[in-house]
Amino acid sequence: MGGVLGMIRRILIGATLLLSACSSGTEEAPLQLQVFNSTRDLIRARISSGQEVERPPLRRSDLDPLEGSYLEASIERRDILAYLFVNVDLDDDYPGRLRVWRTDDNVTLTMRNGVLVSTRGLGDDLLSSRVQVSGTRPGPSSGGEHVQYIRTAEYDSLQMSFACELVDLGPETIVIVERKHATRHLQQRCTGPSGEFVNDYWADSGAGLIWQSRQWAGPGIGYMRFRRLTNQ
């Protein structure tokens, strides 16, 4: 076989085989195959992230026909935004009511009376939290201890404890997609050995919910913003 021709033929066969690399069955796919697949996904993601996607402006007329509750959430640091639907409402032995919000691509955010207690699917997730809530009152019920358990890159749960004070900044009218809501602005200022954060809640005790908030979700995620788009 001619040297150069043989080489070209081998490279072609090789390229074909590599591109058709695949596996099936209950054994885990070989390492090289997984590396190959994740590199391909990465390249695809890079290519598609280059294409700017214009987010259509949200209008109340789009929201009005919707049934159910929807939450808009964004992560300030990552500049990403999502709309979440209610996955499930739950009660447990701890104070407050739990609501699990979910995105279509399997991220969940869990709130206890509107206070964020856990995240899943974001990476560097907030595993769980100890928060001060009571009854059905929206938002934190008092100052005091606020503890976050953070998933570290070493697969540990890192406990971060904070002492917080709760300040009522008085009534504020806010606008969410063309609709005004009368709220009280609650500010939770928390200090711990590793630093400080401030959470803001705009609470409507009549409707029993937090219309909008900005909450800190741990060192890996940073501040998140939430707005309730609908309330059914």
């Binding site: 300030e76 995105t103 279509d104 691509d105 913003r225 707005r227």
Partner: peptide, 30 residues
């Protein structure tokens, strides 16, 4: 719910959408 979420403008998968607020008044508190 999923169908609605999709219609609303997609989930985190479609991710990297600019999260800038639209109307000046909206999100002023945030």
């Amino acid at each position: 719910a999923r169908r609605v979420a999709r219609r609303l403008g997609v989930a985190l998968a479609a991710a990297l959408l600019p999260a800038t607020m639209t109307a000046a008044q909206e999100g002023a508190g945030l």
